[in-house]
Design a binder for these strands. Structure first.
Length: 871
RNA sequence: GGGGGCAUAGCUCAGUUGGUCAGAGCGCUUGCUUGACAUGCAAGAGGUCACAGGUUCAAGUCCCGUUGUUCCCACCA
């Protein structure tokens, strides 16, 4: 082993080795139980960020754990074409070259997009590899691959035939900048300061006027009515009359509709059916015409008269001026309201009437809700099920058509001869109704999430009945961020149920966002993003992984900080050096299995501790509590193994007793081996690198068995007894530090104990670790002489002659303090034992424990009191 | 308007069936070239677990309320 821990010297080499030797490949094996994770496919828009790093790390820990446990573990990787996001990026790139989509044409643009895909998919995959992800690269899938496209086609046609996909005129969210529709979830709302403009609409043929309040005055050209509440005494009389639209001079009717809120604004609301979802409904109820006044790019159309061609905001500005000059503008009230923005380009979204494709959600949502109530799908943590229900129960039809080029083109053709709409699994050449060759395909593509929704089964071969699909589906756990429940998780659930008749996964492990040091979201605009690759370069992938896992609870956000990575890097260094200690000591020695050596008390203690750790880590990992598992391993490795056991093993290693040395070496190697295996899912590189130097090790650790709890190695009694020895060591150290005795100064220990065997069997350890030169067993305090400091412990009383360092007053004070502590414990235990409720209702085990404690403390009090008397 | 989350040591956070749970990392104090590691070792200081009630023999841990903070959903023109 190299003396210094240098992750950059082995991480890439190990990954290449793993990949080349096929360690990541999952092939159906009917002698094994499958365990499947499909990777949430990163977008090919850019590069890995910390959120990805966390997502991949969580999945890798789980899949490595399961693989070591003997499952046929498949982690299926892939990337997402990310229709709108990618198209936006490519258009931006083209803009820098003074190119437009129109100039390239659809085919030219797609060619360019595929080039983009090659470049960025490679980049993303390289980055995922850097993290150590053990996914099966032979199965790498792209959402626009042939197989995914077939799945999309199959699903679309099936839903179409079941009338669950339909085309209709509805108010949709329109992004004027991307020039496409957006689904409801793709709109992000943000509070903005705006105005509520009050505008006077004169009643036809009179001098009277109704005053409407609006936040979007430019849409008034599309007003086809004005609504008042039928119960509103102020306006009841106007229902049925007409008002005259200012500027255009058009007469529109006043209708009575509950939609008009008497409390809000003036109580009169203009009705613009083509540009507002509520108005659309009102329009339907009253038979009002639907009049679009805006073009796809956010400019006004001919309906706006002289404002035609102006951008919506420029039109607003000029129109308001005209209204003011014409005396129509009554007032301008500041108004804070929520405005929808495009989740990709952040432009203000316009609700616009448009003919689009929709998925009918109600029939799909019902079984999807049931799957979660029936626990066929479990959210971790559970609370996210609520979020899911809330959305699913109120879900609206899903607008799936996008006016983009990059994506799955809608598989519908229109016949221009007979007007037929053709939707079939194979591309038609002629119209199946009239035989005309004059057919053309729908220009639009599908929402990118349409193909993502099929991911758990499209990647495994759907629509064919593949062996993989039969074996690996349903997948086991989906690991993803809570921000994506609506976009993706819920859609996979209803899609899996609809097309596979089975849930896509059993568990959904949610994680939070990785925020910056100050708790802010990492974002481009803030420039506070941290590049995982830079961190890996500096500290290694293992340190980054561990830092993303440690102290993280499922579903909770976490903060990234260099300091945390550094702390984890220190831990890696610790693992490295401890291993180096074990391996160099083992060199040249034939290390026997621990079953063939005679273990010392210390040996049994660490083996016992290891068993608890194996049990707890397995338990927590099975519950997906990776953060807790990390902490258990961290504490065990650093405190128990390094700070305690390695130090305890030194007297045996260097003491000259061959049998003891043999036992200690066996124990060290055994415990290190197990610890490395336990740690491997979390920190795969360092553990494998060290493992290769371990005596008797062969091949890679990633294919070795995950440690199993062995009750024969639990040594519960031995371990409990040894805790008494550790107690002596700890307390002697504390006393020495307290009285200012130099650590290098060896003290004598006079001990009164009924457990001489325990102490003398571990004499060498006590001497070395406590910094003592001798232990003498005595029967009375007086034998220790004067000027001693006393420590009353569970397993005996230790007297330490300290000569001039001892101050009688201080010693009395110290003992008095200890007496108080012990007395408090006695009071507590006594109180419990005298509590009828506790005695009758608490488990017997607890009562017994409390009783034993009380006895111990009572004995200790006696000894302290006696000592105080002696002073 | 509806629904969540969070509130624990100076800072960042764990603490999942109520009973050694009052913890970790970083920071701080004191002392150490202790035959793997100063990326270290040892010993310490530091919290009435937001506030007020309730359930229970027993509550950071369950219930109710309050305050602060934060997120999601819906949305009034």
């Amino acid at each position: 082993m190299e003396k210094k821990y240098d992750p950059s010297s082995f991480e890439d080499r190990l990954y290449a080795e793993w990949e080349e030797s096929g360690c990541f490949k999952a092939v159906r094996d009917d002698n094994k139980v499958p365990f499947t994770i499909v990777m949430p496919p990163p977008n090919i828009t850019g590069q890995l960020h910390m959120g990805h790093a966390m997502d991949e790390t969580l999945q890798d820990v789980i899949i490595r754990f399961k693989r070591m446990q003997g499952y046929c573990a498949l982690w299926l990787p892939g990337t997402d074409h990310a229709s709108i996001a990618t198209e936006v990026k490519i258009v931006e790139e083209m803009k820098r070259e003074n190119l437009t989509k129109e100039q390239l044409g659809r085919e030219g643009f797609l060619k360019r997009a595929w080039q983009w895909k090659e470049k960025y998919e490679n980049r993303i995959c390289t980055q995922i590899k850097k993290l150590g992800s053990s996914c099966d690269w032979s199965r790498l899938t792209f959402t626009m691959d042939e197989k995914c496209s077939r799945a999309v086609r199959e699903v679309f046609v099936n839903l179409y035939n079941k009338h669950l996909i339909y085309r209709g005129n509805r108010i949709i969210n329109w992004c004027p900048k991307c020039r496409t529709t957006l689904s409801d979830v793709e709109v992000e709302y943000a509070e903005e300061d705006g105005n509520l403009w009050h505008i006077r609409y004169f009643v036809e043929g009179t001098d009277e006027a109704l005053v409407v309040a609006t936040t979007r005055p430019e849409t008034m050209f599309g007003d086809t009515g004005v609504a008042v509440n039928p119960a509103d005494p102020r306006y009841k009389g106007y229902i049925g009359k007409n008002v005259i639209l200012p500027v255009s001079g058009k007469a529109i009717p006043v209708v009575g509709d509950e939609h008009a809120d008497m409390e809000f604004g003036t109580g009169v609301v203009k009705i613009t059916p083509a540009h507002d979802p509520n108005d659309f409904e009102v329009g339907l109820r009253h038979g009002l015409p639907v009049l679009r006044v805006m073009n796809d790019d956010g400019t006004m159309n001919a309906e706006a008269g002289k404002y035609e061609g102006l951008d919506r905001y420029e039109c607003r500005k000029r129109l308001l001026k005209e209204l003011e000059e014409g005396g129509y503008l009554v007032k301008t009230a500041p108004h804070r309201h929520n405005v929808g923005h495009c989740y990709r380009c952040n432009a203000t979204v316009e609700p616009i009437i448009s003919r689009q494709w929709f998925v009918k959600m109600a029939p799909l949502a019902r079984p999807a809700i049931a799957a979660v109530t029936d626990k066929k799908v479990t959210f971790i943590p559970e609370r996210f099920a609520k979020t899911y229900y809330n959305w699913m129960e109120n879900v609206k039809d899903w607008c799936i058509s996008r006016q983009l080029w990059w994506g799955h083109r809608i598989p519908v053709w229109y016949c221009s001869s007979c007007g037929a709409e053709i939707c079939e699994k194979d591309d038609p050449d002629v119209c199946p109704v009239c035989g005309s060759a004059e057919i053309r395909q729908d220009e639009d593509v599908l929402d990118t999430w349409f193909s993502s929704a099929l991911w758990p089964f499209s990647t495994l071969g759907y629509p064919d009945d593949t062996s993989d699909l039969e074996y690996f589906y349903p997948t086991d756990v989906l690991v993803t961020g809570y921000d994506i429940i609506f976009f993706w998780v819920s859609r996979m659930i209803f899609s899996g149920l609809e097309h596979m008749r089975k849930v896509p996964f059993h568990d959904v492990l949610m994680h939070g966002l990785v925020r910056d040091e100050k708790g802010r979201k990492m974002s481009k605009s803030l420039g506070n993003g941290v590049d995982p690759l830079k961190v890996i370069e500096k500290y290694g992938a293992d340190s980054l992984r561990f830092s993303l896992l440690q102290g993280v609870a499922p579903g909770n956000d976490t903060r990234y900080s260099d300091a945390k990575v550094e702390a984890c890097s220190n831990f890696m260094n610790k693992i490295w050096n401890a291993s180096r200690f074990v391996i160099t000591n083992a060199e040249g020695n034939a290390v026997k299995p621990i079953s063939e050596v005679r273990l010392s008390a210390a040996d049994k203690w660490i083996v016992s501790r290891l068993q608890s750790v194996i049990r707890d880590v397995t338990l927590t990992l099975n519950k997906f509590e990776l953060g807790v598992a990390c902490q258990i391993l961290y504490d065990f490795t650093w405190s128990d193994l390094c700070d305690w056991y390695i130090e305890l093993s030194k007297p045996a290693l260097y003491g000259g007793d061959a049998a003891k040395k043999e036992a200690a070496l066996s124990t060290l190697v055994f415990v290190l081996d197990n610890t490395l295996r336990l740690l491997h899912p979390f920190v795969p590189f360092i553990t494998d690198e060290i493992y290769r130097s371990l005596p008797g090790a062969e091949g890679t650790i990633m294919l070795k068995e995950f440690p199993r709890y062995n009750s024969k190695l639990a040594y519960k009694k031995d371990a409990a007894a040894f805790a008494g020895v550790m107690d002596v060591i700890r307390e002697v150290r504390a006393v020495k530090a307290e009285v200012g005795c130099a650590p290098s100064k060896k003290v004598s220990l006079y001990i009164v104990t009924e457990n001489k065997r325990l102490i003398s069997a571990n004499e060498d350890c006590i001497l070395k670790l406590a910094g003592a030169k001798e232990i003498k067993f005595i029967s009375e305090a007086s034998e220790a002489g004067e000027k001693t400091v006393t420590k009353v412990l569970h397993c005996g009383t230790v007297y330490i002659p300290m000569g001039e360092l001892v101050d009688a007053d201080k010693e009395r004070e110290r003992l008095q303090g200890e007496l108080e502590n012990v007395t408090a414990e006695i009071r507590r235990a006594d109180g419990k034992l005298n509590n009828q409720g506790f005695m009758s209702k608490a488990p017997k085990k607890l009562v017994d424990e409390e009783r034993a404690k009380l006895e111990k403390y009572l004995a200790m009090r006696e000894k302290i009191l006696a000592q105080l008397k002696n002073l």
